[in-house]
Every structure is written in C-alpha cells, then in structure tokens.
C-alpha cells in the first residue's frame, strides 16, 4: 500500500483540541487523514452521509485535549462512550494489526478503555493502569526530553535510534503513570519482558532523572507504552507539536532539519505501507 492510500481516523469528541496538528502531521507526510467525531462511528444523531465505519481506516489516532471536560477522570468519559458501542470494532481493528495512537488525553483514553497496557489480551474489562495527578499537582507545560527504550516491538518508533534524545513537549496535569501498588514490580517486569515500554523521561545526558526532567512522577519515568503486539501506542508528550524544527524552543541555535516528533508519524506510515 502507498502512503497516499493510508486512511487515518483522527477521532474527536467535545473537548479534544489537538486534532488539527494530528491531522496535519499525517497529511504532510502524504497520508489521508480525516477528522471524525465519535458520533460518526457510533452512528448516533448523524445523517447517513456523515456515518463512518472504523474498519474503513488503517490508522486510528486519538488526539490530546480535555475530552468531555476531563470530568470524572481524564479520558474516562471518552473511554466509556467508546466502550459502550465500539468495543467490538476496536478489538477487530487492533487484531488486524492496524495501529492506534493516543497522545496525551488520547493516552489517558487508551488506558481508561483498557487498550493499554492490555497485559492479557487486546482490551481489559477494567483499567490496568492509571494516569494520575502529577506529583507537583500542577499543569506541567514545557519541553521534555525522551529516550526510546523499546527494543523494536513498537510500530511508532522504528525510525528513532535508541541513543537519540528527542525533545517532545508535555502539557498535562494527569500524566503520572501508575500500576496497582501491590503489583507494580511484577507489572513492570512483565512490561519489560514484553518490550512494552517505549519512551522514558530523561535529562540532557540521557539518564533517568527526577523533577523537572520527569514532569509528573511517573513510575520508572515512563512516558509512553505500547501493547504486546506494538500496534497500540500511547504517550503523554505531544510529537505532533514538534513536526517542524522551528517549533523547537532552541531552533535558531541548531542546524535545520525535521522536528523530533516527525519520526513517530514516519515510523507508523512505514509500518502501514509495509504491513497493511
């Protein structure tokens, strides 16, 4: 399949606000993105022409924002709405090896839906992790540095070398990834064995470091994880905000080139054109 044939569903509901950047990131690389409201997939309150079928798309992208006002918990309402009517479609989509990306609020939605970390199977009935309030109890909004720790399972990071330190901005108040307290160690070991940990927050030397390098106090500095097959990926920082070098804060002091976030989209399009 050619990149120009890859159809991307950028899914939104009220309160998502990063769909434009997400849409543009795929469009600039020659794919065919479309901004789709969740109602168009569930078929509620929409005309016949507006209805869409998830299976017609090759990539599903959940953009950041504050879906449904982040009421109850960040991402919980979006997740509940997806689960109510789309569970089967989602599971089939993922089973077919099609990639799903969740950025920031999108990551929170994937976790609340049970699609990540998905320790056993594709979608767990109840969440197996949580993105809790940052340790600072504040909205942390600034550039963060990430190092890829994934050994190759993740469909979204094949174009990123393991020694590259990527500058990708964070903007969230609930990004502290946590697992059940009584089983944290076991879960971490399993994630490690399954190659599910993708990005960690690091300092400029690439070492795991505390606040402010890690903006939220996440377990083991984890910024992003994928499922066991590597086709569902969620991360808190926003790669779509650094598609171009000139949106890096230090861009005038560095040589020109692509922004650090671009490789995430290139990687997944690579995957889609090769495998789908």
């Amino acid at each position: 399949m050619k990149a120009s044939q890859v159809k991307v569903c950028v899914l939104r509901i009220e309160g998502t606000n990063c769909e434009e950047e997400m849409f543009m990131s795929f469009k600039r690389l020659g794919a065919k993105p479309e901004k789709v409201h969740l109602k168009q997939l569930t078929g509620t309150d929409v005309s016949q022409e507006e209805k869409r079928d998830l299976s017609d798309y090759h990539i599903l992208a959940l953009p950041g924002g504050f879906s449904a006002g982040d009421y109850v918990r960040a991402g919980a309402i979006f997740a509940a709405r997806m689960k109510s009517k789309l569970s089967k479609d989602l599971v089939e989509f993922i089973k077919a090896g099609k990639p799903v990306l969740g950025v920031c609020n999108g990551f929170q939605i994937l976790v609340e839906t049970g699609l990540l970390p998905a320790m056993s199977g594709i979608m767990s009935e109840f969440p197996e992790a949580v993105l809790g309030t940052n340790d600072s109890a504040r909205f942390e909004c600034r550039p963060t540095l990430l190092r890829k720790v994934n050994r190759g399972s993740c469909a979204f990071t094949s174009r990123i070398s393991p020694d590259k330190i990527s500058l990708i901005p964070s903007a969230h108040a609930e990004g502290k990834l946590m697992f059940p307290l009584d089983r944290t160690k076991a879960v971490l070991r399993e994630l490690e064995d399954n190659d599910q940990i993708v990005f960690k927050y690091v300092d400029p030397e690439g070492n795991l470091a505390g606040y402010p390098w890690c903006p939220n106090g996440a377990t083991e500095n984890i910024a992003g994880i994928c499922n066991r097959e590597g086709n569902v990926f969620g991360l808190m920082p926003h790669p779509e905000r650094v598609f171009f070098r000139f949106t890096h804060p230090d861009w005038t002091r560095e040589t020109d080139g692509p922004g650090d976030g671009r490789a995430v989209f290139e990687s997944v399009l690579d995957y889609a054109t090769r495998k789908l």
């Binding site: 109850v72 309402i77 509940a80 609340e112 109840f126 969440p127 197996e128 809790g132 697992f179």
Partner: peptide, 10 residues
Amino acid sequence: CRRLLANPVI
C-alpha cells in the same frame, strides 16, 4: 462505579 466512576488501580 466499576465501569466509570472509579479506577480500580488507585
């Protein structure tokens, strides 16, 4: 509670 209001992890 199980399906929306609480996250059993925390």
